[in-house]
Amino acid sequence: MSEFEPKIVAFFCNWCTFTAADLAGTSRLSYPPNIKIIRVMCSGMVDPKFVLKAFLNGADGVLVGGCWPGDCHYINGNFKARRRVALLTEVLKQYGIDEQRFWLRWIAASEGNMLKEVADLMTAKLKELGPSPLQQMGQMVG
């Protein structure tokens, strides 16, 4: 049997983390293809529904990437994202999705290497954890 390859849905902010992913690419750093990037204007616009839908549709992990505190292009979108992630984590925990599968990380535009590091780490962590408990339900949940 082939090794389990986790699917990670990644919401990256246009200004920092997505740019970091670009930098990782142009710097020829290779990071796992498990990360499926969705480019959003700000981590602060990641609606909890996006995250819920990703998990309900079988994502093994969700990664939200935003600018470091103080660097947000929209001044404070990342702080709002942090409260929202904290809230949603409290909700999901009860049903078996905890902070090991749902990450928020600050990655600056200049931190291509850090993007690679986070992608490596999260992929490895999810390989260790195995498929999302929702996949065992054998049908589209929701």
Partner: peptide, 21 residues
Amino acid sequence: DKGGMLKMPNDTIFYHLTRIT
């Protein structure tokens, strides 16, 4: 197609979890 079937109406868990958030 994804799982061979879809319970209808769908999005029930999605709805309740969204309401919780």
